[in-house]
Structures are given as C-alpha cells and as structure tokens.
C-alpha cells in the first residue's frame, strides 16, 4: 500500500506538484497518468526521497522511504532506463545495485535471465538499445522481489513484443498481491493492464478511480442507430433536444438520449431497427477530456504552407 499525503514540490517559483494525495492499493495495477510536465516524474522522485518535497509525505506500508533499510526488498523502482553508466556492463550495473542491499550475484543472474538479457549481460550498456535498457531497469526492480513496484514509462522504447511482455509481468506481479504503480503515455496499454488510475494535471490531482469508472465519467457516450426509417427517428430525437449526427442514408449517432429510450421511440414510430449500439469513448478520449484544462503544452494541427509562404529547400524561408 502506498499512501501519498499532501505532496508539494516547488522548483523556484514553479509549483511542480501541488498538495497531491492519493493511495495505491495492493494486488492491483495502478496507472499514473498526466500530460507532459504534469509532475508525474517529480512525484515519483519525491516518493522515493530522491527529491525533497516542500510539504507532504509518502508511506510505503506505513513507512517513509528514507527510513527503509535495504529498500530493494520492499520497493523496486525504475525511473529512467538511461540511469546507467554506459561504460559498465549490464550485469555489473546490477551487481552494484544488488550488492548495496546485500543481494548476491546468483540473484543478479536470475533476474538477468528473467528479463531475457543473459546473452548480452556482459556487454557494455552503451551497446544496448533503449528496449534492452528498459529490460535492464526492470531487472534492477526485481532484484529484491519487492512487494511494491514503481515504474515511470517502462514501455518507452520497447517493441510490441516487449510491451506485451511488460504488461504481462506487471499484471502477474499485481496478481501476486504486489502494489504496482506505473506511469505511461501508452493509454491503450494502460487500458489493458491498469485496474485503477491516478490522473494528475499541472501537479494537482484530477481524478482517482477505477479505469472503468474513469472512462464512464469522462468519456463521451453516444448511441449508433441504423434503420431504413432513420430520418423519422432522427426527427423525433431532435425534437427531444438530442444531438444527432448523420452517418449515411441509414445511420445516425445520437448524444443525449439513452439507447433504451431510442429503442422505445423507434417502436412507437413503427421504425425497424437494424442497429442500436450504445458506444463509449476510449481511455484516451476520457484522459484528453479530463485533462483538457491541464495541458501545459498544446499542439496545433499541421497546416500546409500557402503558395505565398514559399518554403525553400532545407526549410529556410
């Protein structure tokens, strides 16, 4: 169990994390979501006593991280796969970490095998791909078989097989009763592996709930209707104040009226229904909706240069 209470971290005048509180329950994968610059990594660093919070604290099963002796047996964390000396071999990197907590070389070789790096473990890390470094970082997390696991963007740089592998590993670990907190920008992956979500924006808590509740609460809901008499149905729905979008000659999408009501309305009108599908937006839709007011960096849709702009070769104008 992780308990974060009133965590606040400032960098000069910038408030990176603002009075953030949430709990992470054991036996579940909890996704930690937020737009770029929302304070996820800072929060994780504060939780692990790497950054000094200006206020608030974090408890791991009731204990502050700084008070843990041999914390690798209690909390395994991967904050950045790049935190490795490139001139050191992967195995030696793990040995330095393991030895500091009294963990022997046998366990190092076990976790190296577990993450599939046995063949390359004696190669220097500078020859590793980002995906291999992620696996190395995960090996370090697993060294002490901890009951709490914190991962910051663990799927970065992994190929599809690697992403599936890490998802399976995390779900398996949560299934063993471990507490798993994982941040990721891959929302489709998060939708598949997370049970709970903690969503933050601009350093503040936006929502914390189960994934299904979060999507129900924040994603758009609509009903797709297909009927040979679709215009009749559409007209009646518009008269009830519903938003109706025409898909094609026999299809509409309706926002604001439940599917059951549309079915009854169609029956009363004598319209035949070929499709009546209640639909819901994805986790990505829900996330974008929930964090719409908390995006620090906003992009705009790319536009083609106009004829008068005259972009020269090489990008110079």
């Amino acid at each position: 169990m992780i308990e974060v209470h009133g965590l606040t971290k400032r960098f000069g005048r910038t408030v990176a994390v603002n009075h953030l509180s949430f709990d992470v329950r054991p036996g579940r994968v909890t996704g930690f979501l937020g737009p770029n610059g929302s304070g996820k990594s800072t929060t994780m660093r504060c939780m692990l006593a790497l950054d000094r919070p200006d206020a608030g604290d974090t408890r791991f099963d009731g204990r502050a991280y700084g008070s843990l002796h041999r914390p690798l047996f209690e909390v395994g964390a991967l904050l950045d796969a790049g935190y490795v000396h490139p001139g050191r071999s992967g195995r030696n990197h793990l040995r330095t970490v393991a030895t500091s907590n009294g963990i022997g070389a046998t366990r190092v070789d076990e976790v190296v095998a577990l993450v599939g790096l046995t063949d390359v473990s004696r190669r220097r890390v500078r020859t590793y791909s980002l995906g291999m470094r992620q696996r190395l970082g995960l090996a370090a997390v697993l060294l002490g078989d901890p009951h709490t696991i914190i991962l910051d963007e663990p799927a970065n740089g992994l190929d599809p097989e690697g992403i599936r592998w890490i998802r399976d590993v995390l779900v398996h670990l949560a299934g063993q009763g471990k507490t798993v907190l994982v941040s990721s920008h891959l929302l489709s992956e998060m939708a598949q592996m997370a049970d709970d979500l903690v969503v933050i924006g601009m350093g503040q808590l936006i929502d914390t709930s189960t994934v299904s509740d979060f999507v129900s609460k924040h994603a758009r809901h609509w009903v797709r209707v297909r009927s040979p008499q679709v215009e009749v149905i559409a007209q009646q729905l518009r008269s009830r104040g519903a938003t109706v979008t025409t898909l094609d000659v026999s299809g509409i999408e309706v926002v604001g009226v439940p599917a059951a009501d549309i079915g009854e309305l169609a029956a009363r009108s004598g319209a035949i229904l070929h499709e009546l599908s209640p639909l819901q937006g994805s986790l990505e839709d829900a996330f974008l909706e929930a964090t719409a007011g908390s995006q620090e960096y906003r992009s705009v849709a790319p536009t083609a240069p106009t004829a008068t702009t005259g972009v020269a070769p090489g990008g110079a104008t």
């Binding site: 008070s67 914390p71 690798l72 790049g82």
Partner: peptide, 18 residues
Amino acid sequence: TSEFSHGTIRVTFAAVPQ
C-alpha cells in the same frame, strides 16, 4: 561525478536512501 552525469546517483540513492 560520473554518477551525477549519468543519473546513476538516483539509482544509488534509491537503493540506499541513507
């Protein structure tokens, strides 16, 4: 200093917070 430049100091301090 190589621990700071490569970020490994964070791994080190996370493994031993003292």
